[in-house]
Write a protein that binds this DNA or RNA. Structure first.
Length: 264
DNA sequence: ATGGTTGGTCCCCAA
């Protein structure tokens, strides 16, 4: 099974890029974030034309929005809370398959958190910390098996998940307040599937700011997008790829897709 | 220390 996660930064604008991605990688499941499309305007026909007959989406006007596209039938899991009671379309989860072979997939878009890394001064940062804490608490109360969690978690937890650990310690996405909380969430029962393939001592990024003249040359990236799996799926991990080339596509997202292959 | 770019919506917000 091949799963791809991507913060697409407007599904309607980048439908041709999604088609390119699917042609290049033939994923079984695609998890999208920042679809920026209300459910009534979701481009369902165009997504079906790519081979995804089973689509779960949760969107709103202008911001946020997540979607899971699947070739095989899925059921939407409805037991998660409305995170921070905001109704802001940052999570959707599905079950793929049935019985002992079923796999659950959670797709998250964690709040970016604004610019000031202080929850008192900056309500967006407070929201981000509360969101991650709430997610940690919810997952810690579950007996999880055969579960994959992906998405734009908007936090780069490890030293080599950013271009300069020292220079980003006070930059939102890499502050200790965030990285500690993210790792606590991960430790409720997940393995970092990207770092299963790439040692923590190696740089690994999935996002490069639009605000750089030459993103590739300056290479000031961060690993904001993640794939976690429960330990029972770790032996099934077969491959991982960060599709860096997508950052140079026409009218690119600032995030690139991350692909994971599971023998499951 | 600062400003840099993009997308969606509606004259600015979020990233």
């Amino acid at each position: 099974m091949r799963i791809v996660t991507w913060n697409i930064n407007s599904l309607r604008l980048r439908m041709p890029l999604l088609a390119q991605l699917c042609q290049d990688t033939s994923p079984d499941i695609v998890c999208l974030q920042e679809t920026k499309v209300p459910d009534s305007l979701f481009p369902l026909d165009a997504v079906r034309a790519l081979g995804f007959d089973h689509v779960a989406f949760r969107g709103m006007k202008g911001y946020n929005g997540v979607a899971i596209l699947s070739r095989q039938p899925v059921t939407v899991l409805e037991d998660a809370p409305d995170w921070c009671q905001r109704g802001d379309c940052r999570h959707i989860a599905i079950r793929h398959g049935t019985g002992a072979g079923a796999i659950d997939v959670h797709d998250f878009y964690v709040p970016a958190g604004g610019d000031i890394p202080d929850p008192v001064e900056n309500p967006k940062f407070a929201h981000k910390l509360a969101f991650v804490e709430e997610a940690r608490a919810w997952f810690s109360g579950r007996d999880m098996r055969r579960t994959v969690l992906v998405g734009d978690l908007n936090i780069a937890p490890l030293e080599h998940d950013v271009w300069s650990h020292r220079q980003l310690l006070k930059i939102v996405s890499h502050t200790p307040a965030e990285t500690e909380r993210l790792l606590a969430w991960q430790q409720t029962g997940f393995v970092d599937a990207m770092r299963h393939f790439v040692p923590a001592t190696e740089k690994l990024y999935t996002w490069w700011s639009y605000r750089n003249r030459d993103w590739s040359r300056s290479n000031r990236g961060r690993r904001l997008d993640h794939v976690w799996v429960t330990p029972d799926l770790q032996p099934a991990l077969r491959g991982m790829d960060v599709l860096r080339a997508a950052r140079d596509w026409d009218k690119p997202s600032d995030h690139v897709p991350v692909m994971i292959d599971l023998d499951a």
